[in-house]
Design a protein around this nucleic acid. Structure first.
Length: 269
DNA sequence: TACGTTTGATCGCAATCGAG
DNA sequence: CTCGATTGCGATCAAACGTA
């Protein structure tokens, strides 16, 4: 089989899949995020990632974006015979940035492709791909670094939670924000925060409820709705289990002193 | 990663309390 | 009495966990 070179925008909703051919993704315009079996990173113009065959990868485009995709079957001429060494590039997923000469080569490749990409022969695609892979291999070397597990972007998750505080937030929603599967996200999240995603969201809700209690005389029923509790009783239950006193008692104690257990939010369950 | 099981939080309702 | 808030309880279901 031959290599295929194409340009596409990536969906702005998180997608995931795996395929039986290797792939190289290079950013041309805008930004995208990838998570390839635990290795995550962002792609912008002139940077890219290597996706080995049969590796499940999550990806999401951000706004208007365009990516150059090289689909490379293991038996493509650009990875076999004289070029067999280049297949080492796909031993593990990795991210890379193009240096100046490779940027020029990419410009050349795009020019070759421009006009009528369908007219580009398979042989021409293979030649262009082989040259690119050869240059990339020379720069990255054959032995990829040990995959480094990316830290979750908690600021981004906080922002997402705060924007959707009044609505139900499922772990799947947060996992999608992090471009991870739900199970992978759960374990990574607990490693990093010591809390389950659900506990973390509830803590944010209670913190928001505290702020509203401090700010004025908004009825508890309204505070419950604004902070994502389905019912005033749900807020009362959660508040009491976290702080040891009901919301109204907390409000009465203001501004003199917060509940003694205000700093025990981490123990909220 | 998928799947089955267990756990425990939430929901929704009703009863009750307390302040005005 | 009214209204806002608290508490209790059973049903439900999502999250967590264990295993393959």
């Amino acid at each position: 089989m031959s290599s295929i070179i194409r340009q596409i925008p990536l969906d702005t909703a998180t997608q995931h899949h795996a395929h039986d051919f290797h792939q190289i993704v290079i950013g041309l315009q805008g930004r995208a995020e990838f998570e390839i079996e635990g290795l995550g990173g962002a792609i912008s113009a002139f940077s890219g990632c290597i996706v080995p065959a049969n590796h499940v990868h999550y990806y999401v485009g951000q706004g208007e974006n365009r990516q150059l995709i090289l689909d490379l079957p293991a038996d493509a001429p650009s990875l076999t015979g004289y070029h067999h060494e280049l297949s080492r590039l796909f031993d593990a997923p990795r991210f890379f940035a193009l240096d100046q000469p490779l940027k020029h080569y990419l410009d050349f490749l795009l020019l070759e492709q421009s006009g009528c990409p369908e007219d580009m022969s398979a042989a021409q695609s293979d030649r262009l791909a082989a040259t690119f892979l050869g240059c990339l291999h020379a720069r990255l070397g054959g032995t990829p670094p040990q995959p480094r597990v990316r830290q979750l972007d908690l600021a981004k998750l906080d922002h997402f939670i705060d924007r959707h505080l009044a609505n139900p937030i499922a772990v799947a929603d947060l996992a999608a924000q992090a471009c991870l599967s739900e199970a992978h996200f759960r374990s990574r999240f607990r490693e990093q925060t010591g809390l389950s995603p659900w506990q973390y969201v509830r803590r944010r809700r209670l913190e928001a409820a505290c702020r509203l209690l401090e700010e004025g005389r908004m009825p508890l029923s309204q505070i419950a709705l604004n902070t994502g509790f389905a019912h005033q009783s749900a807020l009362s239950h959660a508040f009491r289990s976290a702080y040891g006193c009901p919301p109204s008692q907390f409000r009465r104690s203001l501004p003199d002193r917060p509940p003694a257990s205000l700093n025990r939010l981490d123990h909220a369950t």
